[in-house]
Design a protein around this nucleic acid. Structure first.
Lengths: 192, 192
DNA sequence: CGGGACGATGTCAGTTACTGTCATCAACGG
DNA sequence: CCGTTGATGACAGTAACTGACATCGTCCCG
């Protein structure tokens, strides 16, 4: 079927995500009910929960894609690189993913940081990411605890760099902030 | 009043925490209702929610004390130490806190790791801890992003070391695992 | 010693996140 | 043309949490 329209408007997930971000921004996460989001998207509450396991998850539709990029990139780095260099190169590549998304990232981050439950969900997504990165490093022959520590360090750098990038409206790219954070971590670990 | 008994049995919080850990261990977190915990503790569901904001929080009664120890110890470290050395010394002190609690930590960790919502709560407690440590470092004159990165690195070391300590039943203390993890992080950051 | 304020608890009704189940109906394949 | 499939709607139900008010020992003040 080409161009044919189904029984319903297409892209239900996209409409739900847009509606949720808008309502969470306007009225706050707690003050927004799942039924309101669904109504704004032209759907019912039941359908909302068919697409997303809970009210929070609707803000994390991109998490799977991010993990894919992280893992694929790390897995594609040359085996000769040290773990930290592989991670540095991965962060460089991942930063490109956000090049056109500064404004979206800003709005989404503002919503998440305003609510504890959403911050919890963000943290477990990052933890899952760290876990996947550690597994990828182990597949490359990195032993534990080095694999876990490299993954955790990479995520820490990503968190700190990302937060600072989102908090500034200047010209510097995410890649700039990630490089700065990684250099900072190396300096700290070296005892400076 | 010394030794006097109130209108009710004392230590309601302690009874709720014990009952919750036992029921979560036996039947799982999701299969346990707040009413069941309260009943086992000789209280009502409403009273449970007066002591704990939600079903998860009852497993984290010690988090405040842990943050206190972390922050007090870090704040008490000599100003001449580098941030990473201050953090290393803090981890050493904090490890003593768990010396007599290996079995309890094991059981609690098993319950938490078995459930996603509980893992989320654990992660936000650690994030709050990292935030407090970063603030303490800033008060000592450490600039950002070094302060945030040192705090995140310290928590990463704590996480990795703690998980490995809990996963082994041998003789090695938590302090041993934390030293090993910190050394591992330094090696990773140095590019080994 | 008496009475009122206090504090922890009980009781009960209510909201909402989330789930299970069945019905609906366009598109698709044969 | 008909049976299957897949996304959705309709509706009832559970349990987490909240607000309002009642209860009743303990404490404090006069």
């Amino acid at each position: 079927m080409i161009g044919g329209m189904g029984r319903w408007e297409p892209n239900a997930r996209g409409r739900l995500e847009q509606a949720a971000l808008a309502l969470y921004s306007e009225h706050g996460f707690e003050q927004t009910t799942a039924a309101q989001i669904a109504e704004r998207a032209g759907l019912t509450e039941r359908t909302f929960f068919r697409h997303y396991a809970d009210k929070r998850e609707v803000l994390f539709g991109g998490a799977h894609a991010l993990e894919e990029i992280f893992v694929q990139t790390l897995a594609g780095t040359p085996d000769t690189a040290t773990p930290i260099d592989a991670m540095a190169s991965t962060l460089e590549t991942v930063a490109a993913f956000f090049l056109e998304r500064h404004e979206f990232a800003r709005q989404r981050q503002a919503v998440i940081m305003a609510n504890t439950e959403l911050r919890e969900r963000e943290l477990i997504k990052l933890a899952s990411l760290a876990s996947a990165l550690a597994a990828t490093l182990r597949r490359r022959g990195v032993k534990d605890p080095a694999a876990s520590l490299t993954a955790e360090a990479g995520i820490a750098v990503f968190k700190v760099g990302f937060e600072r990038w989102v908090g500034e409206s200047g010209e510097r790219t995410l890649a700039d902030f990630l490089r700065e954070a990684l250099d900072g971590l190396k300096a700290v670990a070296a005892g400076e």
